[in-house]
Amino acid sequence: MKNKSLVAINDLSKEEIIKILDLAEEFEKNPIQNILSKKVVATLFFEPSTRTRLSFESAVNRLGGRVIGFSEAANTSVSKGESLKDTILTVANYSDLIVMRHPIEGSARYASEVSPVPIINAGDGANQHPTQTLLDLYSIRKTQGTLQNLDIFLVGDLKYGRTVHSLLMAMSNFGATFTFVAPKELQMPSEYKIYLNEIGLKYTEQTDLNENLENADIIYMTRVQKERFSDPVEYEKVKNVYVLREKMLQNTKENMRVLHPLPRVNEIHADVDKNPKAYYFPQAMNGVYTRMAIMSLIFGLQ
């Protein structure tokens, strides 16, 4: 991975994924190190993202590096009409690594082709967000002790949700069984189901969140967004159906954990927060260790 960009989760082999997770584990044991002391990391956020940006900046700071950048495009040369290429070529002069979030799909791949310094994709529109997937994998492995043969429930917007698509592709390396829980309008696209059939992994689909939760090792919640529905009546019908409540966790396995990429709105009721099976805030913490591991591998440091 040294000096390489990270644009999409499928750019990484299974071995590279495991290497990142192993290194993240080391950083969790020893999170304050001075290994980035001579490095400048640019965080270019062309659209806002609190969690991703802050966790990258936290990771750089804790490893002794410096951060430059912006958190929205409004007050930058971009608002004057500068092209992405020009912005990247300019910022590459000032930094050793560029972390970029951009609303346009494919922007990160393009940036990685024009940039003389490595690019980490921190989200390009609805396309890819590989560091989120890696922190999800880290959280799953940490809570379950393994990535092999787990029973994963993916809940909510499975049609448009890029995090669930990337997680599915990554977990398919490890022999998972999937349950897709979604309203009819937001079911998992057929291309992913065809893929699972091809590689011989089992999945089932259900519309009721209350069913079969006792089988789950991981319940991965996502938000059902109103703007995804063409018919507002349909949204009103389902909006309260995909809300996880504490009482629904009663018969779930001891090892089961609830994950969510955050921000949550109302799809996980606040009464779940105090349950030890709620893992979404520690999951956000894991994002720092995972990003430390990714950056130090790209810099060729450990």
Binding site: L84, G106, Y110
Partner: peptide, 12 residues
């Protein structure tokens, strides 16, 4: 086909 693709936004 994707209007939000970088190739439809910049000279790529």
């Amino acid at each position: 086909v994707n209007p939000k693709c970088i190739t439809n936004v910049e000279a790529v």
